[in-house]
Design a binder for these strands. Structure first.
Lengths: 164, 164
DNA sequence: CCCGGATGCTTGACCGAGCAACGATCGAAG
DNA sequence: CTTCGATCGTTGCTCGGTCAAGCATCCGGG
């Protein structure tokens, strides 16, 4: 530890709690909405989105994992679930025989198309309706920085620098 | 649905993804840090914090649930875990014989005191070091509004208002 | 060519959280 | 006082996720 703890100011604490609490409620609400409306979990929905944006509507498992901040095993199980539902198909990789592609099926694309409007409406209602354009830009820039500070230096040692 | 879907603008989409991704990474990092440093999950840590702030260092289960955006059953299990570790004690409620208090033990207070500096340092390193005071105020106000828009009107019907 | 370490995906064991259901208790209405 | 609906906390079930181990494959050094 570098020195005495610098506790959060009341303002920081309030911001931190509002951020945590609202995020938890928001994700939960989106999850429920998707599940009720389209029979998809938020994770599954996001997986479909990634695939739909990828060239050839397919992505290697590792890339899917990297893009989602999830572990490989989590991706495996999610894809298995989606495959069982017919929304995704596994395709072997020719260049690397270890590799696996997850490929969006037509049914998957249809499911995504059906689920998207409700999901977007929910995100708008709960999040963006409370933000003006300046907020959006600020949020983007701010959380972009936070993300970069996290996923590049993944290790916890960085959390409490030794001296400087 | 009120009308054609208003998709997210590229800016909104970027903000949304940065927000989601960084939050996921952040919470995960905090969880790992706490677990490694103090043997507590983030949920457990938060529970101890709430109790430490409550009068008499005790809170009813329902209030604990309400404060944490968690379900009653989740609180039951968390408290059971903490009780098994000796950090919390269950105390029956005199006014309401259905009720249960969770009360912080001295060992619990000590565990919290030991865990807090590292946790706060981690929150600073990953979050507040990227924010200036104006950002903090803005975040607080903004997420406060989002939270209020979510936990008061808990129902999903509000997500897509019929007309107005 | 062969071998050893690294990488990619999967699987098994475990854990934490939510939902639904349950028994116990409260409180208000008759 | 009795009764009926609502509330509190707990529990069974299931789901989704991580961790660690495993097998197959790749790739670079001898």
């Amino acid at each position: 530890m570098a020195g005495p703890t610098r506790w959060l100011t009341p303002e920081e604490q309030a911001a931190w709690r509002a951020y945590l609490g609202s995020t938890r409620l928001l994700v939960h609400a989106l999850d429920r909405q998707l599940e009720a409306d389209a029979g998809l979990s938020f994770t599954e929905y996001e997986t479909l989105v990634r695939l739909s944006e990828a060239p050839g509507r397919r992505l290697r498992m590792r890339d899917l994992a990297g893009a989602s901040a999830a572990t490989r095993s989590g991706v495996t199980r999610t894809v298995t679930r989606l495959e069982r539902a017919g929304l995704v198909r596994r395709v072997e990789c020719e260049q690397d025989r270890r590799g696996m592609h997850a490929e969006l099926t037509d049914a998957g694309a249809a499911a995504l198309a059906a689920a998207a409007p409700g999901h977007v409406a929910s995100v708008r209602a709960h999040l963006f309706d409370h933000l003006d354009p300046a907020d959006v830009g600020r949020l983007r820039e701010l959380f972009g920085r936070i993300r970069d500070g996290l996923d590049v230096t993944g290790e916890g040692a960085q959390a409490v620098p030794p001296a400087a």
